[in-house]
């Protein structure tokens, strides 16, 4: 069994001491642990070496699940506890995505996708960081993400829905001046009799606002996205998903 000295990781990040004393989810497998560490560390350069080494004992799917995604879960935990800030999570998610790409190449085909999710950041809003995290978590959990990017006009969201037939749509907004686009998107979709769950989140977006229009589900944080998408795939309606998460 390998012991990995996470202290060195935390020292480098200038982190608070109490975190080190908390239990950190790790793998007993030295190869997978190296993958986890590279993700937690946000060390994209270390990812190819760690992932390729892990192929000696693990199939690519397991490396994704027990290495890359597990590392990102650790990053999410550090984020939740206020230890990691956004730059670290972006760098970690880059590392995770680089690793997933290597695993997918090894498998010879992309992972079977559970369904399509369209993500976007509201028109006028250049803060697409929350969306990036949502994308990474959805992909890591086996969804195909159609990433419309930031500053997306309402019309583009509507035509993407027609084209890709997603199970769910997400919108993020960090600016108070941009979030009103979400209500327009929801009403355009329901007008077309398309009652897709429309998950909205981000700094400017409140539960009250999102629940004020049909199909709107408020996303508290990026981590909820994969669970909501699973529910949508399993046939739950927007109102059932809203009830579950927004109670």
């Amino acid at each position: 069994m390998a012991t990995v000295d996470l202290n060195s990781v935390f020292v480098r990040y200038d982190l608070k001491k109490e975190v080190i004393e908390k239990s950190v989810s790790t793998s007993k497998d030295v190869l997978l642990q190296a993958v986890i560490t590279a993700v937690v560390d946000g060390d994209e350069d270390a990812i190819p070496g760690a992932v390729n080494a892990a192929f000696a004992a693990h199939d690519p799917m397991d490396i994704i699940k027990d290495g890359l995604v597990k590392g990102m879960a650790e990053v999410s935990r550090l984020w939740d506890e206020g230890v990691y800030f956004l730059p670290q999570t972006i760098i970690s998610s880059d590392a995770m995505l680089a690793g997933i790409e290597i695993c997918e190449e090894k498998m010879g085909k992309a992972m079977d996708k559970k369904g399509v999710v369209i993500t976007h950041t509201a028109e006028g809003d250049i803060h697409d960081l929350g969306q990036k995290i949502v994308n990474a978590l959805l992909r890591a959990n086996g969804f195909e993400v159609v990433d419309l990017g930031k500053d997306v006009p309402v019309d583009d969201v509507i035509s993407a829905v027609k084209k890709y037939k997603p199970v769910m749509v997400t919108g993020t907004a960090l600016m108070t001046t941009t979030m009103t686009a979400f209500k327009k998107i929801a009403s355009r979709l329901t007008h077309d009799h398309n009652e897709l769950p429309f998950v909205c989140g981000g700094g400017a977006v409140s539960l009250e606002y999102v629940n004020s229009f049909d199909t709107g589900i408020w996303g508290k944080d990026a981590q909820q996205a994969p669970g909501m998408a699973e529910d949508a795939v399993s046939g739950k309606s927007w109102s059932q998903i809203r009830e579950k998460y927004n109670g």
């Binding site: 730059p87 972006i90 760098i91 250049i126 960081l129 990036k132």
Partner: peptide, 11 residues
Amino acid sequence: GVIDILKMSFK
């Protein structure tokens, strides 16, 4: 760019 400045602020 926002993402680039955040990453570089850290790295």
